[in-house]
């Protein structure tokens, strides 16, 4: 992940060659270049951790759009970050099926053990905890959470702690997104 401090100002590109190549591939894939906006935003986020305005402007140039058009799309979808999140994203599903099987307790436990509330990032910047999310499609393994968009199911406090201890030891996932998500 590129640190925010290295994100350049004043016309110097912030997107690296690999990200630009990803955007170019997406652009060629669709009958209309504009369809590549979502994949391009994923590519920017994978490189920089969140959607910096300079990155959005470069996407607009690549796809022949106005920066405002790209920005309007970026703010609609909840999985695009407007600010730097923690290195790892924890999402606790609290919809009906998870709620029936103890997801509120799970979230409370994680809030206590991580020392943050729903929506906050730990002081060391390792975890962002989200407890207000869409149904994550893990109702068969409720209660469940996703960490960096991978599902962990049939959780209790102990299991969740163990998973987060393992994740903590891993490097940031952003550059690992080999797929054009």
């Amino acid at each position: 992940m590129t640190e925010a401090s290295t994100v350049s100002q004043g016309g110097i590109p912030v997107l690296d060659a690999a990200t630009r190549a990803r955007i170019q591939r997406s652009k060629e894939l669709y009958p209309s270049a504009r369809s590549a906006v979502l994949p391009a935003l994923w590519a920017v986020q994978d490189q920089l951790g969140f959607l910096v305005p300079e990155g959005l402007a470069e996407v607009a140039v690549e796809l022949g759009l106005e920066p405002s058009e790209v920005e309007a799309v970026s703010t609609f979808y909840s999985m695009y970050f407007q600010h730097q999140p923690g290195r790892h994203l924890i999402q606790v599903c609290r919809n009906v099926s998870c709620g029936l099987r103890g997801s509120d307790d799970l979230l409370r436990h994680l809030e206590t053990s991580l020392g943050v509330e729903d929506g906050e990032t730990t002081e060391d910047g390792v975890f962002t905890l989200e407890g207000t999310v869409e149904c994550l499609g893990g109702c068969g393994g409720a209660p469940m959470m996703q960490v960096d968009r991978y599902s962990y199911e049939n959780l209790d406090a102990e299991k969740a702690d163990q998973i987060l201890a393992d994740v903590r030891a891993r490097p940031a996932p952003s550059s690992g997104a080999a797929t054009d998500a």
Binding site: L29, L38, Y77, S78, M79, E134, D180
Partner: peptide
């Protein structure tokens, strides 16, 4: 026929 996988970004 082209087969293209398109990823959403969080919107029910």
């Amino acid at each position: 026929c082209e087969l293209i996988v398109h990823g959403g970004a969080g919107a029910y």
